[in-house]
Write a protein that binds this DNA or RNA. Structure first.
Length: 301
DNA sequence: CGTTGAACCTGTTTGC
DNA sequence: TGCAAACAGGTTCAAC
C-alpha cells in the first residue's frame, strides 16, 4: 500500500511529534523482517531521533550520536556515531506512535518506548516490510543502488533512463533502480494520463512521450501527497487517518468500469507480474515486436 | 539483458 | 453456509 505518496504522508506525520524524542527501550515480537534484531536492541536505547526522512519508499529515522560519557565509545564499530533506523512498509506496514497504555494489535511487532510516555509502533500483518539499524557507511551503501527521485528528475535524465532500456514501461516505472518510489498504483495512473500502454517498450517511446509521462507522473505524485495518499483497504498514516487520493484514481482498480476520457471499458492485464489497469482505446497496444533477427541459423519460421 | 514465476505471509473478497 | 481460489500498495531470486 505504501508508495511514495503514502510514505511521504507517514513521514510528514511523524515529523510533527517524533524528532527530539529519545528511545528508552525496544521490544520485539516477530522479527523475521528485521535485518539484525540484536542491533536494534543494542543500539537504539538512549538514542535521540533527530529527524525523519524519506528515500524512495524508505523511511529513515536519523539517530543522534551517543553522547560522550553516556556510553563510552571504546569500540571502533562506529556504534557511537550517528546512525539510522531504516523502515520499509512493504505492502501492509504501519509506523505510528501511540500511548504506551493503548493496547496493541495482533500484528504489532516492534515497540520503541519514547521518553514522553508514547511508543512508536510498527505493525505489519504480512511482514513484507523491512527494518534495519544502519551506520552511516551501511546506509550509504544501502542507498546507492536506487534510481532518480521521481519528483525531482529532469527531462533529460528521465528520457535517458527510460529510452535506454529494452523493457516494458510498466516494468521500468516499478524498477526502483530506475526511479525510486513509484509503485503499482501510480505507475498505472501516470500511464493512463500519458496515454501510454503498459507494454510499450522504453526505447521505443519518443522524447515527447517520455516528457509527457514525466510531467504527469510528477503532477500525480504531488497531488496524491496533498491528498495524503491512497487508501485502498488498509493504508493509515502516522495519525491513523486514511488517505483520499483513491477517489482520484482513473485506471487503478477500475477494471470493467468506463474510462473517464472515452467511456471505453477499462481492462486489466498482468504486466511485469503485476495487475495493470489501462484503457485499451486511449492507451493503444504496441505492435508486437518481431523476434530478434537471429541469423544464427534458426530453423525458420 | 530481459521476462516469468515463485516465494515470502496474512487477510479479505469472490466464486461455486 | 462452506470451502477453495484469487487477489492485495513490494521485493528478491532462480530459471530460461
Amino acid at each position: 500500500m505504501p508508495e511514495l505518496p503514502e510514505v511521504e504522508t507517514v513521514v510528514r506525520g511523524l515529523r510533527r511529534s517524533i524528532p527530539g524524542r529519545t528511545i528508552l527501550s525496544v521490544r520485539l515480537g516477530k522479527m523475521d523482517f528485521i535485518d539484525n534484531p540484536v542491533a536494534l536492541e543494542m543500539h537504539l536505547p538512549g538514542r535521540r531521533i533527530e529527524s525523519v526522512e524519506r528515500f524512495g519508499k524508505f523511511m529513515l529515522l536519523r539517530l543522534s550520536a551517543v553522547i560522550a560519557g553516556e556510553r563510552v565509545a571504546s569500540d571502533d564499530n562506529g556504534d557511537a556515531a550517528a546512525a539510522s533506523l531504516l523502515v520499509h512498509l512493504g505492502m501492509t506496514g504501519q509506523l505510528a506512535p501511540s500511548a504506551a497504555a493503548e493496547p496493541a494489535g495482533k500484528h504489532t511487532h516492534v515497540y520503541l518506548t519514547l521518553d514522553d510516555g508514547r511508543e512508536l509502533r510498527y505493525t505489519d500483518p504480512r511482514r513484507f516490510g523491512r527494518m534495519a539499524y544502519l551506520t552511516e557507511a551501511q546506509l550509504a551503501a544501502e542507498l546507492t543502488a536506487f534510481g532518480a527521485d521521481p519528483l525531482l528528475v529532469g527531462a533529460e535524465e528521465f528520457a535517458t533512463r527510460i529510452r535506454s532500456r529494452n523493457s516494458r514501461i510498466k516494468a521500468l516505472l516499478l524498477d526502483q533502480t530506475v526511479l525510486r518510489g513509484v509503485g503499482n498504483i501510480y505507475a498505472d495512473e501516470s500511464l493512463w494520463r500519458a496515454k501510454i500502454h503498459p507494454t510499450r517498450v522504453g526505447n521505443r517511446l519518443s522524447v515527447k512521450e517520455t516528457e509527457t509521462l514525466r510531467k504527469v507522473l510528477q503532477d500525480i505524485l504531488k497531488k496524491a501527497i496533498v491528498m495524503r495518499g491512497s487508501s485502498i483497504s488498509d493504508f493509515l498514516d502516522a495519525n491513523g487517518e486514511p488517505g483520499e487520493y483513491q477517489r482520484r484514481h482513473r485506471a487503478y482498480g477500475r477494471e470493467g468500469e468506463r474510462c473517464y476520457r472515452c467511456k471505453t471499458t477499462i481492462r486489466r492485464a498482468i504486466v511485469a507480474g503485476r495487475s495493470s489497469y489501462f484503457c485499451p482505446k486511449c492507451q493503444p497496444e504496441p505492435r508486437r515486436r518481431k523476434r530478434k533477427p537471429s541469423r544464427a541459423r534458426a530453423k525458420k519460421s
